[in-house]
Design a protein around this nucleic acid. Structure first.
Lengths: 342, 342
DNA sequence: TTGAAAGCGATACCAG
DNA sequence: CTGGTATCGCTTTCAA
């Protein structure tokens, strides 16, 4: 049973395909109310739906955007994607997801695929859009946007929070609670997105407060996951047992640290305060619930998509720095409080 | 700067578009090695990429599949999607994600959209494919697969775990640890996917063991989230303070219960054992880490996509019941163990 | 080995 | 208000 085409509808309704097309596109002109009724009925009866591919060919638009993530299964990606999807829905665009695994070849492959599919815009999430992609990006000649990432390519807006500032604020928060012996669990310092900038913010706050700031106070183990947090935590305890507060560069890292602390009989927050980063759903589920830096991922995704759509419509668009804030929960205790309870 | 087309390439290389096309498609015949070299070079130089839309129109294939989720931001969806995406990558198909919010109108809208986009197959995840979609599904005339969901429509394979059996096993596990006073934190019992079947499994195990099994032992609050777990936990403690072990129908529910237990000074697992369901990343991050029923979501997504692709290639396909298993961690204590430690 | 030409399904211009 | 037709970029058959 072949799909019916506009031709079939035209034949069935005894009109020309031109007329059917006009009615389909609700141009409002070029047909009488009567034919419209008639044609609409036959369309309904036949269960006809226009072929978006044919439409796309002539209109030169695919109705899709592409989204590239290094890892789609991460909680952060899921929330970003949610925001993107809902914006796309409003703009009647569909979203093609691509999982790059942070692999340059895969990324190029996908970019090429998206190019061939004639996507009308691309969101590059959680990663750095380097010069290596310059050529294809230029060729594609459609708007790009980086989301929670950065770009080496000019004129591409970045939608993200100020990581340096947010990390600075998180660290300041700990200092204001009276902590003077701080440590940080970082992601990979070579990560230009979520690694280095957060370290910078941490250091800045310490130096400004004239607090000790040795490199050994900053520990990491490759990535931003739970196990990385556990491992890094051990280094901290070994090298800096005097630590009373830790800034973790992701909620998962913080969770790992908390888990390891528990295993070692260290009480959070009584013996040790921990602040996380991201405010994923995980944060409120931990015991104690995790004080953390909030990034509103869903909103960020939504806004990034909207900026992309504006750009697709030819409007001038700019980078957007999203606000962040500290969500106070139960994993940080002020030093005063600590004394009080003793 | 307009995109270059096959025509441009043909002109530039002084051959016909037919030849370029043949080379592009690596038919292996219809051109000499020499022209091939020449044409490939001009293609490379011009940075030409074929237009997949035009290709799709003539070949009647879009190169995409659609995936519908009730909620893309859920951890479970993210893992399923990951599996789907990686299978799709291998099959050189791209995946269009749709977030239905469990809304029937939205779902229809998306189905229609996917139809128009000529997707070659559809994965319907985490939800029931009811008769309401029968018409469009039939019309679309492409393979469907339900993933971690069920269908009222015939000849559509279901890829999922046996929820009744898995819940039965989880409950049995608690019983085998010596628990006799059990309770369950359920999702919505009207949820035919993850609600009712899990309740059935729970009841079955209790009855079989001739253990008390009143309806009040099963509590819920709409959904499967953290807060639902907290709320349901309160009911359990109020109505059945004798409870020593809880089966929660999702890891998030379990997390909520654990959080509330902690707030009430109830120790897990010493005073109360809890087993979860899903084995999302969350499970290992909790303190104590959560014993839970494992569903391998990423694998499920991968397999579902593969089954879909097989079906797209005209092969006969069947439903697939994935194996589940109990992941023993720290949230369940056997009654013996309990006595020992006292 | 090569090229000309007929579509794929829809849109839009131009006549009538 | 309506219909014929060129066209979008590509594949494929048929001749040369």
């Amino acid at each position: 049973m072949k799909k019916s085409t506009i031709k079939d509808v035209a034949k069935e309704a005894n009109v020309s395909i031109a007329t059917v097309s006009r009615i389909l596109n609700e141009t409002g002109k070029g047909y009488s109310e009567k034919t419209k009724q008639h044609v609409m009925q036959t369309i309904e009866r036949m269960g006809y739906y226009p072929n978006a591919i044919a439409r796309g060919l002539i209109n030169n638009e695919s109705g899709s955007i592409g989204v590239l993530f290094p890892e789609v299964s991460a909680m952060v990606s899921a929330e970003l994607l949610h925001g993107i999807e809902s914006a796309a829905q409003a703009f009647r665009k569909s979203v093609i997801v691509c999982n790059t695994s942070s692999d340059q070849e895969k990324t190029k492959h996908y970019l090429r695929l998206l190019y061939e599919k004639q996507v009308e815009g691309v969101i590059f999430a959680n990663e750095r859009l380097t010069n290596n992609y310059q050529r294809i990006v230029t060729q594609m000649n459609v708007p790009f946007v980086t989301l929670s990432g950065t770009t080496e390519i000019n004129h591409i807006p970045e939608i993200k929070v100020n990581d340096v500032q947010a990390s600075y604020d998180a660290t300041r928060y700990l200092i204001e609670q009276g902590h003077t012996r701080l440590a940080m669990i970082s992601g990979n310092p070579n990560d230009l997105i979520a690694g280095a900038p957060r370290i910078d913010g941490f250091k800045k706050a310490l130096k400004e407060a004239r607090l000790p700031c040795e490199d050994t106070q900053i520990c990491w183990n490759n990535a931003f996951y739970f196990d990385d947090g556990k491992i890094a935590f051990r280094s901290i305890i070994k090298n800096h047992p005097e630590t009373t507060a830790i800034f973790a560069a992701s909620d998962e890292l913080a969770a790992g640290a908390m888990s390891e602390a528990h295993a070692q009989g260290i009480m959070v927050p009584d013996d040790l305060s921990i602040i996380g980063y991201d405010n994923t759903k995980l944060a409120m589920m931990l015991i104690p619930s995790l004080t953390t830096v909030s990034q509103e991922f869903e909103t960020m995704g939504y806004k990034a998509a909207n900026i992309l759509f504006q750009s697709m419509m030819g409007e001038e668009v700019e980078s957007l720095t999203m606000k962040h804030k500290i969500i106070e929960r139960g994993s940080v205790k002020s030093v005063n409080e600590k004394f009080k309870n003793q």
